[in-house]
Amino acid sequence: MKSAEGRGRTLDEAVDAALIELNESRRNVDVRILTETAEETIVEVSVIDQEAAAGEPAAPSNGKAETARGLVEGLLKHMGVRALVSVRSGSDPITLDISGRDLGALIGWRGETLRALQAVTNVMVGKHLAEGERVIVDVERYRQRREHTVREIAMRAARQVKMTGDAITLDAMQPFERRAIHLALEGDPDVTSSSIGEEPERRVVVGPRKPAEG
């Protein structure tokens, strides 16, 4: 069983230090407190997930993904950010998950810093990627959570459109959020989605699908 010792001023810091050394996620480990004083906490963190313990990669063997992961890990290290970078399993395009504590600054205002980080990552990894191939960067599943939220908004809007027959204009959203809405509603035979306005105030309009469109 893989394990590591972590030290820090607090329990969280000590666990994070061990997780980074193990390159593991918090949900895959067992934590044992060795000593805990006002100045320092020492913990032993052991991997409990057997697959992870065997060192099986999170995603299918992908050199590009590993290169991207290494570059982002190095970038974060230079930024002085203590975080774990992993490749999301089975994701296409390549998605890097950054996890750790207090990473709000890495997400930034409306995800602006996260988006900037993704742009830098793609520039760094660009030469390893095929034409049109891109790397998605997510911090604490922020992007995934936003997509989930906007899909729920889309479903609610669709229900309302079906009841009233009136179109609804949603708030201004980022491209990945608008795409999530278009994808969520494309299979609905009763409603349709389109976008109006100019960036960054571009909004999705959900309206009833006309018979000719169906």
């Binding site: 742009a119 793609n122 891109r134 980022q174 491209p175 795409r179 278009h182 960036e199 571009r202 999705v204």
Partner: peptide
């Protein structure tokens, strides 16, 4: 936002 729209391909 315009550049990101190209990169992220909202498709709309």
């Amino acid at each position: 936002a315009l550049v990101n729209s190209v990169a992220d391909e909202a498709g709309d």
